[in-house]
Design a protein around this nucleic acid. Structure first.
Lengths: 108, 108
DNA sequence: CCGTATCCTTCACGATACTG
DNA sequence: CAGTATCGTGAAGGATACGG
């Protein structure tokens, strides 16, 4: 009995993963944050073409709540905020990379 | 330049993958079909607790269109329909398994 | 048995304006 | 600079009944 039986289980880990990274801008945000190592709010918004403040900030909150990114606020004037990937996010990256490679086959 | 730059790219493969498997019942359907090897419509619906006909059938159509499952109709009376994973789906499975294992850490 | 047709609801996503 | 507040919309998801 492996994870392939997850549909029969009470709580499916795969479904849980999709909740974490399934939101519309989630994977783009994770890619951008990981790629940058550390990135500020407006810089991030610039990389994600077309995302609005409401959507970006709520996605960031969720990702932080779910332990994928870390928010650090520097008490300067004006305030500076940086987002970083957590260790948990870094363990996720190779999987996303595999998924990306898999999907790339389709797009050729 | 790896896939980590995907937010800057015109078309992000990772985003494409999420479109394929990001729908609400998508991964459960894939798990159930792969686990069964071959499964009929009503049996599948039975495994997915709470899914309605409208939702299940539209998800199945999308998965078939996207080359992840295969639909086979047997011209019997009453009609019998079986769903099978494609080869493309089987190459995806290890990735989903990795993702599932990753998510399981969170749930402990 | 395997779905479609129809109608309904919800909420994720988004545009815009404004604030500590 | 880094967000909130507010309001709006459409598409995804869903319940129910019916059809080939």
């Amino acid at each position: 009995m492996g994870h392939y039986d997850c549909p029969c289980m009470e709580k499916c880990p795969l479904q849980h993963a999709m909740l974490l990274i399934g939101g519309k801008w989630k994977v783009q945000i994770l890619c951008a944050v990981c790629n940058a190592g550390s990135i500020r709010y407006n810089a991030l918004r610039g990389k994600l073409d077309g995302v609005s403040n409401t959507v970006l900030s709520s996605a960031l909150k969720e990702l932080e709540r779910d332990g994928l990114i870390q928010r650090q606020e520097f008490l300067e004037v004006p305030v500076r905020v940086e987002y970083r990937p957590t260790e948990r996010c870094r363990t996720l990256l190779p999987i996303l990379e595999a998924l990306s490679d898999w999907a790339e086959e389709d797009m050729k």
